[in-house]
Design a protein around this nucleic acid. Structure first.
Lengths: 337, 337
DNA sequence: ATGTCCAATTGGAACGTTCCAACATCGTTC
DNA sequence: GAACGATGTTGGAACGTTCCAATTGGACAT
């Protein structure tokens, strides 16, 4: 038999399907003898409940869907850990889909989850447009992680990306840098405010004329390409703020390959404080985001929203923290302008 | 209305539910006018098909479930990419769950997928016992990645881990090493055969007395702990073969912290050839596994098995390839025994 | 013996699809 | 003008659960 049902178990145990259902759901109004008979029959037949059927009748799946932008970025591994932590022992389970940073694939990944009738949706740094999140939020509690949008029902958990961008510039200016470039994160989550933070801080330090921002994305290759393009220009910056750690690793690769010294010739700063950045060999100065907590809180918001019927959106903004390591230092004398 | 159904759409469009169903499934025996009416009604109401209901009646979910041992290991990001590639445009979709390298959590992650009635199951390097995979394989096509077991219906895609282990030893012996230690991967997938490869090759080179194997696991911390324990011993090895790249990174951290030079004082080899290993700053000698292809082939096996009713198990074993980088070199003269 | 209460058990309806057999409509052919 | 075929459309049954109201069978009090 391919998949025994509750009816097969009932037959085997000589009871009604309803009683089997009660036993499976752990009811206490079942006699010990019936319970034993049912459990033995279920074991013998290899019964496994059918979630699709349960979802239909209960109008609840007890599943939280998580769409992850890019599994290559260790940032998300931490976020997912946090989600798992929060979800464990609540009766809910988390499942993941991924869209590989491609808007179309991400949309499909979300559609898959919605068709499965997940009870909550966590969108981890999607690159697709706001409308997808907004539409989803009309039928299911939805939380964005790493990105926020203004919409009546879309919660978010972010760090203060703009403030983080400012902190990076402040740090570099304190070290004596003036020619500070930025390789941005393109359409990636949080990329915009980080860039805004960068430009604002530059202006505040009277460095408006030094603002130099090139397009990148949240991948190693994106960072590398951005750096290569910066290197073709006539004047080289003395420091570069890269939109995230992964891209910053790509920048380091390029600089190493070109024989440029970090931080001697050029200081490099990333964003996220992933395990990568902490590695001694990389020693990347970066901005810490509390990744695990962000996952925990996102799941918490979902569970809370499933419980009560809260209608207003909640936006959790966590403080960023600069972590100085070996990839930043004062500009070399020849470079000082 | 929370979730409009096919009936709501039918009412709105003034047709029967069956016709709506036909339109949604893209049938060509529908008049253009009806199709238009139905699509407009669906759009207006925000209709989204209910996968649970479809799964029930079709007895197929058109979903492939993937259980991933550890999302922190970039190895799996590549495998998942491969799976996604193979699955795209087949009408199937992939969903993921993770168990965080904890047997109990992994079991739960698999149970979640089975209850959802996935049409195929890919187990990416599970740490749980063989019985879980065997049981699953009795109701759904099942493929192991990175690990193989002898069972009538459990397919597998692996690289030749044993051969890989031997290649590492050969490489180190060629460089002149004799005191070669191994930090193993504990109960991790493929750890056993890698260790066997190590011991066999050591014996073949007449280095039986130099065999020194300590327990580790597939995490940075596992590798670091293994290395620390090796360093407490009276004689230090001149080279260490670590069970995977992630753990090897942990080893490098410990050696850097202790002020030991790699490869001057100690050569280090990893396994997997993840992006980490290729980084110039880390330059880790390692064994390449074709991760993307492994994912592709795993998904391919599943799809094939869903199609025909193949009953025998298939085991795909791919050849490993040594990739020499900067973390290995000849032992320093003082160390030569 | 009768009635009452409680615990244990039961059948049936419902959830939202798909699929099949049946039906309606209409143009074509003899 | 009857018969036929093709095209488009339809209702009903089924999938495997949950939940509710109803039923059974004791145990106990009267």
């Amino acid at each position: 038999m391919k998949h025994p049902t509750i009816l097969d178990v009932a037959n085997e145990a000589g009871v009604s399907k309803s009683l089997v259902s009660l036993v499976m759901r752990g009811s206490d109004r079942v006699s010990p003898s019936s319970r034993k008979a049912v459990l033995e029959a279920a074991e013998k037949l290899g019964y496994r409940p059918n979630a699709a059927a349960r979802t239909m009748v209960r109008q609840r799946s007890y599943v939280i869907g998580v769409m992850v932008s890019n599994l290559h970025n260790p940032f998300f591994a931490d976020v997912i850990d946090g989600i798992d932590t929060a979800v464990t022992d609540t009766g809910y389970r988390a499942i993941l889909t991924t869209g590989n940073r491609l808007p179309e694939r991400e949309r499909l990944a979300v559609a898959t989850l919605l068709e499965m009738r997940v009870d909550g949706l966590i969108l981890a740094s999607p690159v697709f447009g706001r409308e997808v999140a907004i539409e989803a939020s009309q039928t299911v509690p939805t939380v964005l992680v790493g990105k926020a949008i203004r919409a009546p029902a879309v919660d978010s958990v972010t760090n203060d990306d703009r403030r983080g961008g400012e902190m990076v510039v402040n740090h570099l200016v304190e070290l004596g840098h003036r020619r500070i470039a930025h390789i941005d994160g393109g359409s990636g989550a949080g990329a915009r405010p980080r860039r805004t933070g960068y430009t604002h801080a530059m202006r505040r330090h009277g460095l408006e004329s030094e603002i130099r921002s090139v397009r990148g994305n949240f991948t190693e290759e994106g960072g590398a390409a951005g750096m290569r393009s910066l290197l073709t220009e006539s004047t080289r910056p003395t420091a570069v703020f890269v939109a995230n750690d992964l891209a910053a690793i790509g920048v380091l690769e390029v600089l190493d390959a070109e024989g440029l010294d970090v931080p001697g010739d050029l200081s490099v700063v990333g964003y996220d404080n992933t395990a990568l950045a902490a590695n001694r060999r990389l020693g990347l100065t970066t901005v810490d985001q509390p990744r695990h907590d962000m996952g925990r809180m996102a799941a918490g918001l979902i569970l809370e929203k499933i419980g009560q019927d809260r209608t207003t959106a909640r936006h959790v903004v966590l403080p960023p923290k600069l972590v100085a390591r070996e990839s930043t230092g004062p500009p070399s004398d020849g470079e000082r302008s």
